[in-house]
Design a binder for these strands. Sequence first.
DNA 1: CTTGAACCTCTAGTCACTAGAGGAATTAGG
DNA 2: CCTAATTCCTCTAGTGACTAGAGGTTCAAG
Lengths: 149, 149
Amino acid sequence: MSDMSIGRLSALSGVKVPTIRYYESIDMLDAPPRSPGGQRRYGPGHLERLRFIRHGRELGFGLDDLRALQDLSARPDQSCDEADRIARRQLQDVERRIAGLEAVRAELLRMVERCSHGVVDECRVIQTLSEHALCVHHDQAGQTPSKAG
Amino acid sequence: MSDMSIGRLSALSGVKVPTIRYYESIDMLDAPPRSPGGQRRYGPGHLERLRFIRHGRELGFGLDDLRALQDLSARPDQSCDEADRIARRQLQDVERRIAGLEAVRAELLRMVERCSHGVVDECRVIQTLSEHALCVHHDQAGQTPSKAG
DNA sequence: CTTGAACCTCTAGTCACTAGAGGAATTAGG
DNA sequence: CCTAATTCCTCTAGTGACTAGAGGTTCAAG
């Protein structure tokens, strides 16, 4: 288990080899000792940490959040309010994204269901994309403070 | 309406000024004529196209897809099968992402609901991330993790 | 000892923008 | 016409989280 090569660590963690090296380069993962020839040799601590990161990434946490959570878990006496706050923020973000995607899904469904498989000129897909151009929906411009059309 | 500045086009389309220039640079949007001093002057066709692009982006289409859809709409006699195919692929992608995010949401909910607001050592948030036993990845030799995003 | 897989560093590319520097043009008011 | 404010210009570089490839070195098995 100790003295793993990067390939073995990759297989055991499910994180690709270049990604492990990338994590090291951005200080997400401690640089391991090297073999006499200069190749990385990992211990079980690295594997544990990588799995933590991978699990967190699967849940959509950013690497900065995971760094913060990892730092917290190194100080077990502290209050876990910060960890809770990070997780709740992530939950809200995920819920917001689900809501957005469901609206998108509804519109895409309308699009493809109305497609009569004719020619482009009558195509609902393209028409819908063009038509909605007439609606000035949720205006998020914010780039020109003076006047708006 | 004709001879808009880039700022006005931005306000009317909801697409930010640097993004409009970026679209021009990657040939998503025709380069407009210039004023004597070299500033861009847009017509209504540009506005229509930009709104098409923005709407498509809101639905999650990639710029390559939108380029293809635009090219199709310039040839109204063609079959719209290609447009339909692009939209259906997008719909599937969105549905796949929703499913992934809902699994993520469930796990995040379990996380924060079990947090007892004590100290880090007992924190469910951090514990859950560390518990790779419950993790979905069994691929000990595989090299292709799938991601929820 | 040879072979071939796995490893090394480094650069650059991905997607769709965003930020900022440093300067030129335009517009509104006087 | 002059000035000041605003908008515009090009260009480079940065974002997040990797991924791909070149060109070379080390390791483990036979």
